[in-house]
Design a protein around this nucleic acid. Structure first.
Length: 573
DNA sequence: TTAGGGTTAG
């Protein structure tokens, strides 16, 4: 990659790092790798002139720290943050802005104020982005009250924002010695009894910040507050705070989410009237809205309107309308938009391929779906990801083709991609459809191990698969299959797993299945002794399951506890 | 180089 005796200028390589930092997939990981590779080379370099031009600067560190924040890797963040000294890089305000994002990703709302205080304490000049980052973080936490407090304080020109934010922390923050944040924000918590620092200067909120707050209202379903805010912004004195195309697009998004397409269109008209032009994103939001309403003709009209207005539809516009065609069972339409897109020279993304696969999956055309998948594999611009593999699993599962689905899962594992809860969910549905309860047992064994259940150990090193957080759909499907097949021992394991993960099992449904299918089980008096013995264990499991359901059972009135029987019956496996 | 808006997943 890099010739020996040569090192790229820091501006050159750090711009690559910064681009990769915020792209999707594993690109932040790539960014970190490139950063580490270059700094490693710089350390080995002797020519001071070259080193001076190539060594990382604060901007380069900010780029790689941003990558760490984006993937929530706080340990790596700390490591790189500490390393800044080595190259005489001082953290600047952007470094701390990225740290705000790290706190947000690491679910440490309590520490946001200390990042702000650290900036003030170190005498680093604040910038608007710090406040923008803070408001975005509080909005991300769903804490609109605090987000509003920040904006309000800024409007009032207050300098005691740190005090306000400290008071907004419901609980006392705590940092242990082992916490990386204790090292990133030294003495922050111990000094919290001191007077909070005052800001050196104040900033006015701008439309960007108001729009962030609006997004919070949207996420909370508070559309009325959004409209009120839009109205207020229009009447604000400074032009910096007036609603812009992003503000309007956010309002349109909220209406679209509500299904209020008429109101969304009114906003579009309003934008034209006041001379804030809609852009491609605005149109894409509206197209999505019509597709959700199954009004594909309206969505198509908007595509035409885009061309007329000189806004070329992009890959997102096409992906959206392709998905819309699927919603109305028009896989031919989906394909023709896919082809039109390519004819216009717009490169399909993995979303395009995956969506097209979905079209063929929903029309039962496995061969075509497979062909699309192969094309995606061949396309060098696209990296096949977990979602794409899951779609292929789903293609077969939807038709109950369990063997094929399983072999896709094997292939994905060979390609280094681990099945997730969606993969297993598809397969479980396929198993249910194919009525192959034996397969459900095999699947449950794999899932159980990844949930840290069964063996009593936290994880199992033998499978080599990472831990899995199961969800309701998956476990319910598996439990359903097991109850129908009278695999009560396994059914009890699964419902125990559900309870362990805070998922309430649907007892009513399982009771109904039990009563309809198995209430007459074990009632035959004519079986041989040998056969009755063989049944004994299954019968015990059935009794335990009935006990769990609350149906009359042989344990009633005894000192029996569910846990102890599960241990007794299944603990020794 | 951070921070506002859109698309894919059982």
């Amino acid at each position: 990659m890099l010739k020996s005796g040569y090192l790229p200028h820091v501006k050159a390589w750090s711009s690559v790092v910064s681009k990769l930092a915020s792209l999707g997939d594993d690109s932040p990981m790539e960014a970190i790798k490139i950063f580490s590779a270059v700094t490693k080379r710089v350390r080995r370099f002797s020519d001071p002139a070259v080193v001076k031009l190539s060594k990382p600067d604060t901007a380069a560190y900010n780029a790689v720290l941003n990558a760490c924040a984006n993937i929530g890797d706080k340990n790596r963040f700390l490591e790189l943050f500490d390393e800044m000294n080595e190259f005489d890089c001082e953290p600047d305000v952007l470094t701390y802005n990225v740290m705000i994002k790290l706190c947000a990703r690491a679910d440490r709302k309590d520490l946001l104020v200390f990042v702000l205080e650290r900036i003030v304490e170190k005498g680093i000049p604040l910038c608007m982005s710090t406040f923008q980052s803070l408001v975005a973080a509080y909005v991300g936490f769903g804490d609109l009250v605090t987000a509003e407090k920040v904006v309000q304080a800024m409007r009032e020109g207050r300098r005691d924002l740190c005090k306000i934010l400290r008071e907004a922390n419901e609980e006392k923050p705590c940092l242990s010695d082992t916490d990386v944040f204790e090292k990133l924000l030294p003495n922050s918590v111990s000094s919290r009894d001191n007077e909070p620092l005052e800001l050196s200067r104040v900033f006015e909120p701008n439309s960007r910040m108001y729009t962030t707050l609006m997004k919070g209202y949207m996420n909370a379903g508070r559309v009325t507050d959004m409209v009120r805010m839009l109205e207020a912004m229009r009447h604000l004195g400074d032009s910096e705070s007036h609603p812009d195309h992003v503000t309007y697009t956010t309002v349109i998004t909220a209406f679209v989410k509500q299904g209020s397409m008429d109101r969304a269109r009114e906003v579009l008209a309003e934008m034209a009237r006041i001379g804030v032009p809609a852009n491609r994103v605005t149109y894409n939001v509206l197209i999505k809205g019509y597709c959700q309403q199954l009004q594909i003709d309206k969505a198509e009209e908007l595509i035409k309107e885009m061309f007329d207005t000189g806004i070329e539809p992009d890959v997102v516009s096409y992906n959206t309308i392709i998905d819309g065609c699927i919603l109305v069972d028009d896989s031919a339409g989906a394909l023709s938009y896919f082809n039109e897109m390519r004819a216009r020279g717009i490169a399909p993304t993995k979303v395009s391929y995956t969506t097209l696969m979905k079209a063929f999956a929903s029309s039962g055309q496995t061969k075509l779906a497979n062909k699309v998948f192969d094309e995606m594999l061949k396309d060098p611009r696209v990296k096949v990801d977990l979602v794409a593999w899951n779609m292929l699993v789903d293609v077969y599962s939807k038709l109950g083709k369990v063997e094929e689905a399983k072999s896709v899962i094997e292939r994905m594992k060979e390609n280094g991609i681990y099945p997730n809860v969606a993969t297993y969910g598809s397969l479980a549905n396929g198993i249910a459809l194919a009525r192959k309860p034996g397969e459900a047992l095999l699947l449950w064994n794999e899932i159980r191990q990844r949930c840290g259940m069964g063996t009593g150990e936290e994880s199992n090193p033998s499978s080599g698969l990472p831990p899995l957080e199961p969800d309701e759909g998956l476990l319910d499907t598996l439990a359903d299959i097991c109850v129908r097949a009278a695999f009560f021992k396994k059914a009890l394991e699964i419902v125990a797993c559900m309870e362990q993960h805070g998922i309430p099992p649907n007892k009513t449904k399982f009771t109904r299945i039990y009563v309809e299918m198995h209430s007459r089980m074990f009632t035959s008096k004519h079986a041989s002794q040998a056969r009755q013995d063989r049944r004994k264990e299954r019968k015990r499991a059935a009794e335990a399951f009935k006990f769990w359901l609350g149906l009359p059972n042989s344990y009633y009135g005894s000192e029996w506890r569910l846990d102890s029987v599960i241990d007794e019956e299944y603990g020794s496996e």
